[in-house]
Design a protein around this nucleic acid. Sequence first.
DNA 1: GAATTGTCACCAG
DNA 2: CTGGTGACAATTC
Length: 171
Amino acid sequence: MSDVIRYAFGKTSLGDVLVAASDKGVVALEFVDDRDVAEELFHSRFPAADVVSDQEGLSLLLSRIRRIVDQPHSGSDVDLDLRGTPYEIRVWNLLRKIAVGETMSYGALAAKLGTRDARDVTKAISTNPIAILVPCHRVLKKDGSISGYRWGVRRKRALLEREQLGLRSRK
DNA sequence: GAATTGTCACCAG
DNA sequence: CTGGTGACAATTC
């Protein structure tokens, strides 16, 4: 049997996003520049699944995501359907425990996981299909500088700035 | 910032 | 196994 995955496009203050969800939760959330390209890419990522467009059915989810992007500190309660190797899932779960406004280095993450190399973590993170909801943007290099981001360093910086600003002005 | 080097897991051949 | 590579890290300029 094949899964049914519904997807829809949405606009956030950081750009267009493509969100996809199964019955269990969100399976993917990506920033896209070109919707046609994204759609194609997306189909090929879930060859075994039944991928259907469902703009209306996901409108609620989209609005929640928009809220999270605009106000990261307001908390999120979106169900996720993580798909990946056990190791990757471990990493992603760890990422989700990082508090808003906090950051962590790849090295520190590696230590927590008992991995030898930071690159091990890097690889797992870089294959993360779910932007923002799995806050891979809160992972920086050890000196605090931004190294790279799957969806563009610019967005990563914007996200972080927003989170820290939100924290500060909330007090 | 950018370049340089050490390192190690991963992948293609 | 060999060689290329990287969302790293530490150093150096």
